[in-house]
Design a protein around this nucleic acid. Sequence first.
DNA 1: ACACAACAGACCTCCGATGTATTGGGGGAG
DNA 2: CTCCCCCAATACATCGGAGGTCTGTTGTGT
Lengths: 223, 223
Amino acid sequence: MALTDEAIDKIKGMITSGELGPGDRLPKEADLAERLGLSRNSLREAVKALSMIRVLDVRQGDGTYVTSLAPDLLLDALSFVVDFHRDDTVLQFLEVRRILEPAATALATERMPAEDITKLQAVLDQLGDNPTIEALVANDLEFHRQIAAGSGNAVLCSLIDGLSGPTTRARIWRGLTQEGAAESTREQHQAIVDAIAARQPEVARSWATIHVAGVEEWLRRAL
Amino acid sequence: MALTDEAIDKIKGMITSGELGPGDRLPKEADLAERLGLSRNSLREAVKALSMIRVLDVRQGDGTYVTSLAPDLLLDALSFVVDFHRDDTVLQFLEVRRILEPAATALATERMPAEDITKLQAVLDQLGDNPTIEALVANDLEFHRQIAAGSGNAVLCSLIDGLSGPTTRARIWRGLTQEGAAESTREQHQAIVDAIAARQPEVARSWATIHVAGVEEWLRRAL
DNA sequence: ACACAACAGACCTCCGATGTATTGGGGGAG
DNA sequence: CTCCCCCAATACATCGGAGGTCTGTTGTGT
């Protein structure tokens, strides 16, 4: 396709050149369409594509704005992509997570403030004795998200977050609880927090590796 | 927005449910629009969004098809996203690359067949004495891509590939040549190949770390 | 059997109109 | 004078149809 893609490039150019910055409002559909030399329908396709990857934010009745362009915003489209993958390639995503997560955990051990470590422990504690699958998934997500955030690198954080999409994570937890492995997973979570609290990066890194590798191994067997 | 996003979800569902597999052809615009209960214009916006992230492949005069859904295909939209970022966040991307690239290099050291190592050396050799910036960028890209591919993990490969988008890489090389640092970079590339050829994963990993950290440090100073 | 031309199918682009959500201002009540 | 409600203006959302272009196929002539 030419015309619409051209429009995408032009809008992208307006942003990367600095003509449009984060939070700025685009000219209204009709004006921008005329300026770029195409119809509103074609322009809308370009805008739709850019809003899908969170570069633009369209608000009906108001206007179209450039988002903050924060890395986390742009990268969370990743989980959408991950959802398309079946069992075999999901393993590859998990392999990458086994590389990233230990690194992030080690970074968090060095950089995370004490109060955030307290909050991290609180996340584990707030899980009751007989949590539902949904609660487990949400808790797991929150736990790893906080550690990743503790690495101080927003890109790393959203990458880890997106790499095991919600769908995948749900499937894994369903399987883990079925074979009673949920408890040992919680113990690993606790060990990671302990290592972080003790400010021992290598220990934290190792526990993180063991944790992800365990999930990976389980998933490999399950397929 | 509701209607178009709904259409995106439905098409996504048709794929994840298995109703549509890789390579399958979608019903023609008019039919699919009717089936999903919306107009062709709205459907086109949904299709455009999905083709942007390489889930669908539209061929004018032929039809719309589901792509192979290979991880590398879906992830190379990443470089498009990276291009939107300015100097400060580019450093975060590079930090992540400093985590991934050494890991990939170590994996490649163990898994890469001898003939591929020969090809890798050939990439370095084919660079003349006074290469242009464009040649340097292309060569650099190819070199790291082959190593990443040698890791045997397509997700890891495209992630590394996308993390330093062509735009960023071009800027870096432009700066490096200006201060005569291009030669030392080439020496590091050679050291990485040597370590891989010698099948010493930890040496290869270390060289890769040094290599990326060097670029990172240069970029940090340059800002 | 091959090459070219005509055809049909499918996407591309555009237009103009109508529906819907948000915003901000004006008018009335207190 | 201040506050609140209503409404008109604004901007995006959705629609259906028409004409254009590209691609793959079919049929014809040599």
